[in-house]
Amino acid sequence: MTFSPTRRTVLIATGGAAAATLAAGCDDDDGGSSSTSTTTDRSTTGAAGEELAKTSEIPVGGGKIFAGPKVVVTQPTEGDFKAFSAVCTHQGCTVSTVADGTINCACHKSEFRISDGSVAAGPATEPLPQEQITVTGGSITLA
């Protein structure tokens, strides 16, 4: 009989060091900074009607990631705001940056277009699901 360890078995057998190493692969912080991306915890519940940001906080051609509700809001062109799930469709990591017209996942380097959430580069094969937002009077809220 052969033994094939599960991830849980490996974590238990190797202790905290292995858990920290595995968790680091899905860290929300890419260690750098991007002029068109910000991650914020302003919104923590993701409740409908909850303000995510002011429109002035979302750069044209870029976006902003909201860690609490796991939503990314983009502004592909002036005044056109879009929202998508911030959970990568490849293996469930939270996306880490928005730069150069794409929403980027640091875990496995998938990229999604800021205009429609479609896959720009794999390994992801499915687009980011669209989220509903309302833009009123300079305020962006979850719908």
Rank of each mutant, 00 (worst) to 15 (best):
T38N: 14
T74W: 07
D80A: 13
P59I: 01
T55A: 07
G68N: 12
E78D: 15
T45N: 11
I65A: 05
G79E: 05
T45P: 09
I58Y: 00
A47D: 13
V71I: 15
E51C: 04
T77G: 12
P76T: 07
V60W: 00
F81K: 04
G79M: 09
A53H: 05
V73T: 06
A48Y: 07
T44V: 13
T38G: 15
T45A: 11
G62Y: 02
G62W: 00
G79H: 06
E51K: 10
R42A: 14
P76M: 10
K82P: 03
D41T: 13
G49E: 08
G49R: 06
T55P: 04
T44A: 13
G68S: 12
A67W: 14
G46S: 09
P76D: 10
G68D: 12
I58C: 02
T44F: 12
R42P: 06
V60L: 02
I65Y: 04
D41S: 14
P59V: 00
D80V: 15
K82Q: 14
T74P: 08
V73R: 04
G62V: 02
T44P: 06
K70A: 13
G68I: 11
A48N: 12
I65L: 12
L52P: 05
A53Q: 06
K82I: 03
V73N: 02
P69Y: 06
V72G: 02
F81N: 06
E50Q: 09
P69V: 12
V60N: 00
F66A: 10
E51I: 03
F81P: 03
T55D: 01
T40M: 09
I58G: 02
T77P: 09
T55F: 04
I58D: 01
G61Y: 01
P76A: 10
T77W: 07
V73Y: 04
T74M: 09
G49K: 07
R42W: 15
L52S: 04
R42K: 13
T45R: 11
P69W: 07
K54M: 09
A67H: 15
P59E: 00
V60K: 00
V60R: 00
P59A: 01
G63R: 03
D41H: 14
A67L: 15
K64N: 08
G79T: 03
S56I: 05
G62K: 01
V73P: 02
E50V: 07
F66V: 10
